[in-house]
């Protein structure tokens, strides 16, 4: 069983890319989504991400993330669409509630962007080893210590999730019912569990820091890295594709 943000091992074309290319490509896609106003471009990024996931052999977890995001998106969409007052009214409801074409367009773009920004990052994190990501960040000028802290912090996110579900399982075994439909009731049950979770998390983070220290983390030198990364043709292709996408966004911006 692999959880969210866990590394998905493999030796596909995408896995073998230079970690810096993966980083730049995924953040580049996010940037493109924020810069463009074009729904189709954002949709294109989503399709492109799913294609990447398929190439990397991780379509299933990517679709799971997409499903979860879609649920959240629906909520956000509904929360937004009624608040835009400008534009032509397309649907009018009693009590002065209505939906305009601009509202529809704005909310759609918002939700599409949310999905399009999450997927590339999710895929990048799933196919990049933490040590490679750390090394890539140091190439960008971040000191090793900070880069390591950042990637380690990321690793703790799924660990929290696991711990939370463990605590909830233990409580369920004691007769606590979490599947309550009532949101407030559910929150009341979950909130008291947050303190023990926080405490055990602090312990774990401390333990990780100790483990790193005990294995010479503090004596690491600039040239201590063993792995050598080379830019290959794949990297050129991926970065080239990114340049094209950004160029399309730019053109659309000025002429669209």
């Amino acid at each position: 069983m692999s959880g969210l943000l866990d590394y998905v091992p493999g030796n596909t074309f995408l896995h073998r890319l230079h970690p810096l290319s993966k980083l730049i490509f995924s953040f580049g896609l996010c940037l493109a989504c924020f810069l463009t106003q074009n729904h189709w471009l954002v949709l294109g990024v989503i399709v492109c991400s799913l294609l990447q996931a398929a190439l990397a052999g991780m379509l299933k977890p990517a679709l799971a993330v997409l499903r979860a995001l879609s649920k959240l998106s629906l909520l956000l969409f509904l929360a937004q669409v009624f608040f835009v007052r400008q534009g032509q009214i397309v649907l009018s409801l009693p009590l002065d509630i209505y939906i305009t074409d601009q509202g529809l367009s704005f909310s759609c773009l918002f939700v599409l962007r949310l999905i399009a920004v999450t997927l590339p990052l999710f895929i990048m994190l799933s196919i990049t080893r933490m040590s490679d990501l750390t090394n890539a960040l140091t190439r960008l000028g971040l000191p090793y210590k900070y880069a390591f802290a950042l990637t380690t912090a990321m690793r703790f996110i799924p660990l929290f999730g696991k711990e939370m579900s463990e605590i909830m399982e233990a409580q369920t075994a004691r007769g606590v019912e979490f599947d309550s439909k009532n949101f407030c009731k559910k929150l009341k049950l979950i909130l008291p569990l947050c303190l023990p979770l926080l405490l055990s998390s602090v312990r774990r983070i401390e333990n990780s820091a100790i483990a790193a220290e005990l294995r010479g983390f503090n004596v690491r030198k600039k040239d201590s890295g063993y792995k050598r990364y080379v830019l290959g043709r794949g990297d050129a292709a991926v970065l080239g594709a990114l340049v094209l996408i950004l160029a399309a966004v730019g053109l659309e911006h000025f002429y669209g």
């Binding site: 990780s208 294995r215 010479g216 004596v219």
Partner: peptide, 27 residues
């Protein structure tokens, strides 16, 4: 040292990277 809590003392994504970590650090 091998610490008592296993989960949090492993710092890498892949087994070979975990072993490499200390070797790299001590140059």
């Amino acid at each position: 040292s091998v610490l008592q809590d296993i989960e949090s003392q492993l710092l890498a994504s892949v087994v070979e990277d975990e072993i490499l970590f200390g070797l790299e650090n001590f140059s």
